[in-house]
């Protein structure tokens, strides 16, 4: 039985370590957490194997055989030595694990040893995230998260309405966004790419669609992006938007892209919540735009985007983000309003 248990444990641990459990490892914090997971697998599998093995062998060796219907087992009431062992051994193992967990926790939360740290203010609201930067005294807000690779960044997380939870699975860390207080965590990205930003705390009807993207850029690209944002907020919105959008496309195509994917530095996608046949979106959190915009003029559409609370379609929650007025540049808003007015006629 012991041999069986040892072999099964080894196989179990091997399988546990071979499975690709985690999403892409995108931060130095992730390395430590993933290693910690491996240690947990190595410690846990033998316990499970022990229980299953004893049950299986007991069933094989001590099951009632024909003719034993009236037999009883030996009256063993206990064994102090054994009981001490199975109290003390797990206790010591658990204390060990807790100590290791404490070390890891301390490691992933401590501030970088040198240099000032970038602080990004993250604000959750139903159902979007807004990111506030302060780059060398220049402040600007975006709806997509951009961070430079290899530099520690601290997130100050808050909420405007209910509790949300700011989570980028690739970075492994998460924290609740709580109205009234500021919560924080920090990560050091170590891999270029785009990763989903997820809300991990149920926050209302649009919770499943509260998704944005975290872009990890190299230092040079990040600096260029910062430049763009500074220009955009300084009033050069049209120029920056043109540069980002690629210039030559028609306004209608731009607006449709805006509708289905949001903008690179502004708003979340309209199509995530709204159905619009022309754009091929099927969202159902908000009203179907093919229906509610029929026969409406541009002024109404503009008001509905900039100030969604002004008139709420019957039967739908007051759930639309109120940041489109800030997040869309003037020309973007004009194009979107025109596009919606045209396609919903």
């Amino acid at each position: 039985m012991v041999a069986f248990g040892v072999i099964a444990s080894v196989i179990g641990i091997a399988i546990g370590l071979a499975i690709d459990w985690f999403p892409v490892q995108g931060s130095t914090q992730g390395e430590k957490i993933d290693t910690f997971w491996d240690v947990l697998i190595i410690c846990s599998v033998p316990f499970f194997v022990l229980v299953v093995t004893v049950v299986l062998f007991a069933v094989r060796d001590f099951r009632m055989r024909p003719g034993q219907e009236n037999l009883d087992g030996p009256p063993i009431h206990g064994n102090t030595k054994l009981e001490v062992v199975w109290t003390a051994v797990p206790a010591m193992l658990l204390v060990g694990l807790c100590t290791y967990a404490y070390i890891v926790l301390d490691d992933i939360e401590k501030a970088p040893a040198k240099g000032p740290e970038r602080v990004v203010k993250v604000t959750g609201e139903q159902f979007t995230w807004t990111f506030e930067y302060n780059e060398g005294g220049k402040k600007f807000k975006t709806a997509q998260l951009y961070v430079p690779n290899g530099e520690s960044v601290k997130f100050d997380v808050g909420s405007k309405d209910v509790i949300h939870d700011f989570w980028v699975p690739a970075w492994r860390m998460k924290i609740d966004a709580v109205p009234g207080i500021t919560t924080t965590y920090r990560i050091t990205p170590k891999r270029l790419g785009n990763y989903p930003v997820v809300c991990a705390e149920l926050c209302g009807l649009g919770h499943a669609f509260m998704r944005q993207t975290a872009h990890v850029l190299d230092k040079a690209a990040f600096d260029r992006w910062v430049q763009q944002q500074v220009q955009r907020t300084a009033g050069g919105g049209a120029a920056a938007g043109g540069a980002a959008g690629g210039g030559g496309q028609s306004a209608s195509a731009d607006a449709k892209a805006l509708f289905t994917t949001g903008n690179s530095a502004g708003a979340t996608a309209c199509g995530g919540c709204h159905t619009l046949a022309e754009a091929g979106t099927t969202g159902a959190v908000g009203p179907n735009l093919d229906q509610v915009l029929k026969g409406k003029d541009e002024a109404f559409i503009r008001e509905s985007i900039v100030d969604p609370k002004a008139e709420i379609a019957k039967g739908f929650p007051d759930a639309m983000p109120t940041n489109y007025g800030d997040a869309l540049s003037g020309p973007e808003l004009d194009a979107l309003v025109k596009y919606l007015a045209e396609v919903s006629k």
Partner: peptide, 20 residues
């Protein structure tokens, strides 16, 4: 988990050498 573990192990020991 320690008192819970005590219960699990004691149940396992109850099975051992019984007539199941």
């Amino acid at each position: 988990a320690v008192p819970t573990g005590i219960k699990i192990f004691s149940w396992l020991a109850t099975l051992w050498r019984g007539v199941l």
